[in-house]
Simulated scan of single mutants.
Amino acid sequence: MPKQVKKRHLLDYGILIPYLILCVLGLVMVYSSTSYILVEAGQNPMSSVINQMIFWILSLAVITVIYKMKTDVFRNKGFAWIAIVVIISLLLLVLIIGKEVNGAKGWLEVGGFSIQPAEYMKIVSIWYLSLKLSNRQTAIQGKTFFETVRRPLFPIVVALIIIALLPDLGNAAVITLIVLAVLFASGINYIYTLILGAVGIVGSIGFIELINLTHGKFLPAHVYSRFATFQNPFADEFNKGHQMVNGYYAIYNGGLFGRGLGNSIQKKGFLKFAHTDYIFSIVIEELGLIMSILILALLFYMIARIILVGIRSSDPFNSMMCLGIGALFMIQTFVNLGGISGLIPLTGITFPFLSQGGSSLLMLSICIGFVLNISAEEKRKKYSLDIMK
């Protein structure tokens, strides 16, 4: 490839532009969903959006740094080990002294900001497994499934156990699904992944039935209430089902074209988590169903581009990284939408790029940085081959 062509000319705008649009929309919706409550409390109506903007500026800086790095750095086993040891250490720290919110410990307070280590475990899991399994692909033949994945999965399982003990069952479930997606993309016999997936589904159904039979006596109260209310939130509309019912009202109020930006009713104290878990309910209420579908289409277009980069990648590590990140975005989107629509219990998983949450935004942005770098590397390889021809 000609030396005068710089890396910035290899940017994948099909991924970068949707990311920027979604982040700007996220800032608008965070302001819209929090300003009224902040004014009522006598606080600065801009405080939440300023906090989110700080993390976005930091995210843009991190994307720039990751994009300029050589992808060989990502393949360094030492860095991957350091990352996973640091995250597991932070998770243990959270378990001991973490900030408790709604019955679960998940955050560390650092300099006025809250850090959620479980969020970063998502991208670290993808990175670590992609590195380990891509290096083992030539040695997979003749080995059993468990011989291949036993050692790479061990630190992931340790982290999942700690996350479940917090308890943060939502993130534990999402990370488990991400791990299954990376295993599926790794070249290991897909039957094993399907078997693990089937065991997970049957286990989940059995777990829910056990909760129903025992009335969740073995679970923390806040966890059981989520399982108990999602089946029929209107049975306890003014207590445990209050949040989900008002999420439905927000969706109903929006109609096709919405009440107008800033005109949500439900954000005025009815939806406690309007800026996080239920941000998309407020999007529908203010912008309407049609605009919400367009936002989802933009997000799914970006996910499709990420998956396409993974499919077209000539390097196993690059392929697994992109497919894992695409799976992360897809899983997190469907888990959030499933929670607000009542298809699954509410898990506390944020909607990608729109919900308030600095750790979530920074983690997702790190993913974008990885994908943009990999996309540029694959373009460079392709152009080099074209020139050689």
Rank of each mutant, 00 (worst) to 15 (best):
Q137Y: 12
L271Y: 00
S281T: 12
I178Q: 01
L299K: 02
L165Q: 11
T34K: 08
I265Y: 15
R136C: 04
N171F: 06
I66Q: 01
M320H: 00
I265F: 14
I279P: 05
L38M: 02
L93S: 13
I325Q: 04
I201R: 03
M121P: 02
Y301V: 08
G78Q: 13
T214Y: 04
K99V: 14
A221D: 15
L25R: 11
L364Y: 01
D12P: 02
I265M: 09
S281V: 09
N189A: 13
D236E: 05
H9F: 13
G254D: 05
K381Y: 09
Q356G: 05
S35Y: 13
Y301S: 10
G98V: 02
A173H: 00
L22P: 10
N232A: 03
V245I: 12
G78I: 12
D168M: 00
S314F: 08
G98Y: 01
L129M: 10
S355A: 07
M53I: 10
F230S: 11
F207Y: 15
F113C: 08
P167K: 02
L166H: 10
Y120G: 10
T138Y: 07
I88D: 01
V62C: 07
G106R: 11
D236K: 02
S59C: 12
L308I: 05
Q231L: 13
K382G: 05
Q43D: 09
A139S: 15
L299V: 01
F238R: 11
M321P: 00
A274Y: 07
S365C: 09
F334M: 12
L194K: 03
R136W: 14
D277W: 06
V124Y: 10
F280P: 07
E109I: 13
G203Q: 05
Q266T: 10
D168G: 01
T350D: 09
I325T: 05
K217Y: 06
K272C: 02
G112Q: 15
I97G: 12
M291P: 00
N102F: 14
P117C: 15
V283R: 00
G241K: 08
T229D: 04
A172Q: 00
P152C: 05
K389W: 13
E147G: 13
L90M: 09
G112N: 14
M291F: 10
L219T: 05
I208F: 08
I156Q: 00
L361T: 12
F334V: 11
